[in-house]
Design a binder for these strands. Structure first.
Lengths: 199, 199
DNA sequence: TATCTAATTAGATATTTATTAAATTAAATA
DNA sequence: TATTTAATTTAATAAATATCTAATTAGATA
C-alpha cells in the first residue's frame, strides 16, 4: 500500500545524520570511510544509514575495487524541489543566513568559469551540481512552450558548444527537455522547479 | 539551525497514523473524538499526534464550546506542493478514503468503458482524469525498476493499442515514465505518489 | 599465501516514540 | 452546585531505532 511508502520516505529523511549525508553527497560522491570521518560516526553507522537511504532510492552506490562510493539518486534531485532539497543544496557547511546570496554567488561563479565572456561554453562540468547550473543557464534561453526540431535544437546548442550531441543528451537525461518523435520541448516544470532547486 | 526544522517536518510525516489524520482532515475539519473513532485509537493518541502536527504547523485548531476541531493548515496546502500533499489531496478529491471503495468503482467503470474484455484499449479518453486512469492501468503492468528499450516499450504498448507512439508520449508527458538515453524507466514516484494500482 | 583495507554484520545499550488506561482539567449545561 | 462531555496529562509499557564495539566478510595486493 502506498501509505507505507510515504511513511518510509519521510522516515528516511527524519534523521539528522541522514540529512547531513545527503548534504555531503550533493557536493559529489563519497565513500563510507570519508562520510564516517566527516560526520564523526563509525563506518558501521554509515552502513546503517546508507541502507535506509538505499531502501527509499535516495542514493546510488558504485563500487571501485573494494571501496563503495555513494551518490545522490538523480531522481531525488529532480523530483523534490521542496524545502528539504533546498536545504541540502544551500545549507551545507557555511553559515545559514548567507545561504541565499552565497548560492547565487556560486551560480555566478560557475557561469563565469564555464562560459567565455561572449557566452560560449568552455566545457561541461563533471560535478553534477555545476553541470546542472550550466545546463539550466543554456536551456533558459529556449522559448518556453515552443516545439523544436532536432536540427533547431542542434543549431541552438551550437551557439554555445560544438558538441551539441552530448549537451542535447544531457538535456534529456536531466529532464530539462522532453523528446518525442524527433520533436523537443522544454519540461514545463522547468520554469519553476529547477529554479527553486538551484537558486 | 534549519536542519532541525527539516528533520522535525519529516518526523511529523513519518508515522502512518498522522498521515491518515491528514488525509481525513483534507476532507474537512474534525474533532478529536471523531478522529479517534475513525482511526481506531483512543483520544489520548489523537492528542499526542495532534501535538506533533501542531509543532510543525501542519494543522490548525478551532474551539467551539468544549470541542476542538482540527483542520489542515493553509500554509501546508500552499507551500508543500510535493508528492505527499498531492497524494493526500488526490485521495480526497476523488472521493477516496482509505477505507472507502468508491474510487475503485470509478476506476473499474473507466476501465470497463475504455478496455475491451480481452484487455485492449478501445481509445484514449480525452478527459484528463479518465486518461490518467487508463494510463495508470497500462503502466502498472510494467516491471518496476526494470529498464526498457524503446522497442520493448513499443511492443509492450502494442499489446493494448496500435498507436504506441501516442501512448508512449503520454507516459512521458504525464511522467509515468522517464526516458534517459533511449532507455525508459518507470517514474519511481509512481510507486506511491500516483493512484494505487488496481489488480 | 598472507596481509591490508573498506564495508558489513552481530550483539548490546540507550533513546525515542506510539500507545493505552487512568486521573485530571476545562467548559457547558441541567 | 452537580453532572456531563471533550480534551489533556501522567505513568507505564512495548516497539523502533541510532549508535557503538567487536567480529566477520569481500576484494585487492604484496
Amino acid at each position: 500500500m502506498q501509505l507505507d511508502k510515504i511513511v518510509s520516505y519521510h522516515k528516511a529523511l527524519a534523521d539528522p545524520t541522514r540529512i547531513k549525508m545527503l548534504i555531503l553527497l550533493a557536493d559529489g560522491e563519497l565513500n563510507g570511510q570519508v562520510l564516517a570521518e566527516k560526520l564523526s560516526v563509525t563506518p558501521a553507522t554509515i552502513t546503517h544509514h546508507a541502507a535506509k537511504l538505499r531502501e527509499t532510492s535516495l542514493i546510488n552506490e558504485r563500487r571501485d575495487k573494494n571501496t563503495i562510493y555513494f551518490s545522490l539518486n538523480d531522481y531525488f534531485i529532480k523530483n523534490n524541489a521542496n524545502a528539504t532539497v533546498q536545504l541540502i543544496y544551500r545549507s551545507v557547511k557555511e553559515g545559514e543566513n548567507m545561504m541565499d546570496e552565497k548560492h547565487i554567488l556560486v551560480k555566478q561563479s560557475v557561469i563565469r568559469n564555464f562560459f567565455t565572456t561572449d557566452g560560449k561554453l568552455k566545457s561541461l562540468p563533471s560535478q553534477l551540481k555545476k553541470k546542472l547550473i550550466v545546463l539550466e543557464n543554456i536551456v533558459a534561453k529556449l522559448e518556453y512552450g515552443r516545439k523544436y526540431s532536432e536540427k533547431e535544437i542542434n543549431d541552438f546548442i551550437k551557439q554555445f558548444h560544438d558538441d551539441f550531441a552530448t549537451i542535447r543528451r544531457e538535456f534529456i537525461m536531466h529532464q530539462f527537455m522532453f523528446r518525442e518523435n524527433e520533436i523537443y520541448v522544454m519540461n514545463p516544470q522547468e520554469m519553476w522547479a529547477r529554479w527553486e532547486t538551484l537558486s
